[in-house]
Structures are given as C-alpha cells and as structure tokens.
C-alpha cells in the first residue's frame, strides 16, 4: 500500500476543517454543501466502477434509485424502522448492481453505456406503472421520515457519510484491488493474461459501486424527505455525476469529491444566469476543456502545483 503520512494529514485537515465549517457559513450555503456531499458520494460510486474499469455507467440513478425507493417504501408504506430499511436498501441495490453487471460480461464501451442508460429509463417507466400505490407513481413520494432536523445536523450526517465512504474507498483503491481494477480499464485482455479472473474483479467493482450508491441514495432520500422520479431518473443528473467525477479526476476518489464541490458551487453561483437547459453548455464546455487540456482533471492540476512548489522549495 502506498500511503504516506501527508496523505493521512491531508485527510485529517480536511475533516477538521469541515467539522468547523457550519460556524463559518450561512444556512443556505450549508444546504448547498449538503447537496455537494451527496453528489460526492454518487461520484465516488461512479468512480469506483467507471473511473477505474472503464465501464462507463450512464445509469447510476438506477442504483441510487433502488436504494432510495427501497428505504422510502419500507419506512413509509410498511412502517419499517430506518435501522432495518437502510441496510435492506443497500442490499437491494447490491443485487441490482449484479443485475447491471450481467451486460458487462458481454458488451463494453459505448454499448455498455447505452445498456446502463436503458436500465435507468426502464426503472423510471416501471416505478410509474408497477404498484403506483407503493412508489407514488409519476408524482413520487413525500413525507418520508427524515433523520435529522435543520441544516447543521443534515450537514454533519451527510459529511460524515461522505467522508467515511470516501476514506474507505480511497484506502481500498490504494490496495492491489485498485491496481487490478485500473488495469482492467487499460487492457482487460492483459489482466486475464496475467492469470486474474476479470469477471470476479468486475463484479467486485460493481458491488462496491452499488454499495456506495445504495447507501448514498438511502440517506439522501431520508434527508430530502421526498422522491421525485423525474428529477432522479434524469439524464441531467447522470451528467452531473459523471462530470463531477471526471472534472475532479477519475479513478482517484479524492478527485470526484473535489469535482462534486466545485461543480455544485459553480452551478449554484451561475443559477441566476442559467434558468434551464443552459447548464448542458456548462457540462459540454467542461468536458471539452478537460478532453483538450487536462484529461486527468483538477486532482492532477493540484498535484502538479504541489510538486512545483516542492521543487521550488528544494532548489
């Protein structure tokens, strides 16, 4: 494992800084940060799967939705306590993740992206048709139990969840498992040619990704207290997750966290000027700039800056 003391120091500094944050900023800003925390969780989930293995998912809301709907239905319709409904939601999402995994055995590249997109669309259609008495149909659900009151508590919960998931995934991806998953992204044949069972590795990536997405989706729905299927199963939401991950720097875990915060605040400050579809221009613009100048994302820019400073102080 390649972990140095300053890695842990940076994590500690980040966590301490975030603990003091609510005293420094307004409630409104705090709510924006809460959204950023959840977006970061979803971007981490996407990163573990797509950032690493190159199997680009356009259907992450399918996984997030499985987690969110499972716990929402269990708590609201059946009065199940959240202590049980949230683990159940995570479990259901992981089963769903394996379902999503099946096409990955056969197709990759843009076809895989299309299949995952179809999964998301399929789920959007299904929640409207199958048992709308449970799912709330087109209108979704509201009045779902919330876990916290007020922005400050909501912030701490979302941050705690994001930081622990982020740290755990970061540690895990620092091991040889992370190396092997990256290797799949670079050359799957050669990984098989090294005597490794790539199916098992990919399944592990899907399960991890689904675990994070399911947990994030479940907590998010208990923060919002409602589900709106049109906003959840929306290509816009997919783009937000993917752009956050690659903007920050795919396959780094830290990058997607950065990216989620950066993108959330960018969109928040630009909101007055962007009433609707213009945000697509932002996504397109960012993607184009990244592709042309910095395919490795902000994480890489910061790393270069750091090593430049180090280099200067040495000379």
């Amino acid at each position: 494992m390649n972990i140095r003391w300053y890695h842990l120091a940076l994590w500690a500094a980040f966590i301490i800084g975030m603990i003091y944050l609510p005293q420094l900023v307004s409630k409104g800003t705090l709510r924006t940060i809460i959204f950023a925390n959840y977006l970061a969780i979803f971007a981490i989930s996407w990163d573990v799967l797509s950032g690493r293995t190159g199997y680009v998912s356009f259907g992450h809301p399918f996984l997030i939705g499985l987690g969110a709907y499972t716990t929402a239905i269990l708590t609201k319709r059946f009065g199940v306590p959240v202590e049980i409904s949230i683990p159940a939601a995570v479990l259901v999402t992981m089963v769903g993740g394996s379902l999503l995994f099946l096409p990955a055995l056969r197709v990759r590249g843009s076809y895989f992206a299309l299949v995952t997109l179809a999964f998301m669309e399929l789920m959007y259609q299904l929640v409207q048709v199958i048992r709308p008495d449970l799912t709330g149909g087109t209108r979704g659900m509201s009045g779902i139990q919330t876990l916290t009151r007020g922005a400050v508590n909501g912030y701490y919960l979302s941050f705690g969840l994001m930081a622990s998931l982020g740290f755990a995934m970061w540690l895990l991806m620092k091991t040889r498992l992370g190396t092997a998953l990256s290797a799949i992204g670079m050359n799957e044949e050669a990984v098989r040619g090294s005597g490794l069972n790539t199916t098992k590795l990919k399944l592990a990536a899907f399960m991890l990704s689904a675990f994070v997405a399911g947990l994030g989706g479940a907590f998010y729905v208990h923060y919002l207290g409602s589900i709106a299927p049109r906003a959840l199963f929306d290509i816009n939401f997919v783009f937000t997750i993917i752009v956050a991950a690659i903007l920050g720097g795919a396959s780094t875990i830290i990058g997607p966290i950065f990216g989620a915060f950066f993108l959330t605040f960018l969109l928040e400050y630009l909101r007055p000027y962007l009433p609707g579809a213009e945000r697509y221009f932002i996504y397109g613009g960012i993607a184009l700039l990244l592709y042309m100048y910095e395919p490795k994302g902000l994480h890489h820019v910061l790393q270069m800056a750091l090593s430049a400073i180090k280099g200067k102080s040495r000379s």
Partner: peptide, 17 residues
C-alpha cells in the same frame, strides 16, 4: 500490451497478483 498508465513495477505487480 503494457498497462499504459502504470509504472514498469506496477505492470509487473499485476502479473504477480
């Protein structure tokens, strides 16, 4: 067919896994 974004040692690491 090396793993392009890895160092020489990391490439060998995959073989040793």
């Amino acid at each position: 067919r090396p793993f392009s974004d890895m160092t020489v040692l990391e490439n060998i690491r995959v073989g040793l896994m």
